[in-house]
C-alpha cells in the first residue's frame, strides 16, 4: 500500500516536472533579479528569501521593495497587495471545481496559487494513472521552490553572474502563449480568449502599463457577464 503510494507520487512528479520547466527558467531569472535588487537596497538573502517564502507574491514583491525603502506603512502594504494581486480571485473562481475534495493538500495549493501555477493547472490534465491531487501538488510545490531558490541565488551570488541573461524571462511570456494556444484548441474557449486579449489591450492603451491589470479584469468580467447568454453553451444545452 505504502509502496504503490510512493510510486504514484513519483509518477506524478515525472508528469509534473516537464510542465514546470518554463516556470523554472522564468522564476530563476526573476527570482535572481529580485534577490539582487533586495541586496542592493541593503536587504540580504535572509530577508528576500523570507519575503519569497511567506508572501510568494511575484510582481508584488518588486512593488514591495519600494515599501521597504520608504516610511513604514503596513496598511498601505496590505491594500496595495490586495490590489496588485486581485487577479488571484479569478484564479480561485476557476479552480473551485478542480481543487475540490483534495483534503490536506488543498490549503497549500491555495496558499501558493500564482499566475504560472494557475495557468498550468487550469490547462493541463494529469496523465492516466496519476492522481489529480499529486499532479497539482507537484506543480505547485515545484513552482514555489523555483521562486525561493531563485531569490536565494540572487541574494547570495547575484554579483557573480556574468552570463548575459537579457531576454531569458521571455520564457514566461512564451509559457502563457503556449497555454493560450492549448486553451484555443477547444472551440468553446475561443470567444473568451479573444475577449481576454481585447480587454487587456484596451486597458493597456487607456490606463497604461502600471495600472492596466484591475481595469482589464473588470472589463473581462463585464464582457463575460454581459455576453453570458451568447457565450454560455451549457445553458442552451440545458446542462445546468
Amino acid at each position: 500500500m505504502e509502496e504503490t503510494k510512493t510510486r504514484g507520487c513519483r509518477a506524478a512528479l515525472r508528469a509534473a516536472f516537464p510542465a514546470t520547466i518554463p516556470v523554472l527558467t522564468g522564476f530563476l531569472c526573476l527570482g535572481v533579479a529580485y534577490g539582487v535588487l533586495m541586496e542592493s537596497k541593503g536587504y540580504g538573502p535572509e530577508w528576500s528569501v523570507l519575503m519569497s517564502a511567506v508572501a510568494f507574491g511575484g510582481s508584488m514583491q518588486f512593488v514591495a521593495i519600494t515599501l521597504l525603502t520608504t516610511a513604514f506603512d503596513p496598511v498601505q502594504a496590505f491594500l496595495l497587495s490586495v490590489m496588485v494581486n486581485a487577479r488571484h480571485m479569478f484564479y480561485g473562481l476557476s479552480l473551485l471545481d478542480k481543487y475540490k475534495g483534495l483534503g490536506k493538500a488543498r490549503p497549500f495549493l491555495i496558499y501558493v496559487l500564482c499566475d504560472e501555477t494557475f495557468s498550468l493547472v487550469s490547462t493541463l490534465e494529469p496523465p492516466e494513472g496519476v492522481a489529480r491531487r499529486d499532479f497539482y501538488l507537484w506543480i505547485s510545490l515545484l513552482d514555489y521552490l523555483y521562486w525561493i531558490t531563485g531569490t536565494a541565488l540572487g541574494g547570495l551570488l547575484g554579483n557573480f553572474i556574468t552570463f548575459d541573461t537579457t531576454g531569458l524571462d521571455f520564457a514566461l511570456t512564451a509559457l502563457f502563449v503556449v497555454l493560450f494556444l492549448e486553451q484555443w484548441r477547444k472551440p468553446e474557449n475561443r470567444p473568451a480568449g479573444v475577449i481576454g486579449i481585447l480587454c487587456a489591450a484596451v486597458s493597456l492603451a487607456v490606463f497604461r502599463a502600471d495600472n492596466m491589470v484591475i481595469p482589464a479584469m473588470v472589463l473581462v468580467l463585464a464582457v463575460l457577464l454581459g455576453g453570458r447568454r451568447r457565450l454560455d453553451r451549457s445553458r442552451e444545452e440545458g446542462d445546468l
Binding site: 479569478f90 476557476s94 495557468s119 473568451a192 480568449g193 473581462v220 454560455d232 451549457s234
Partner: peptide
C-alpha cells in the same frame, strides 16, 4: 460559468 470562461480569458490577458 465564470470558472469555465475565465481561464482562456486570463491566459489572453
Amino acid at each position: 460559468y465564470l470558472g469555465r470562461a475565465l481561464p482562456p480569458a486570463m491566459m489572453g490577458l
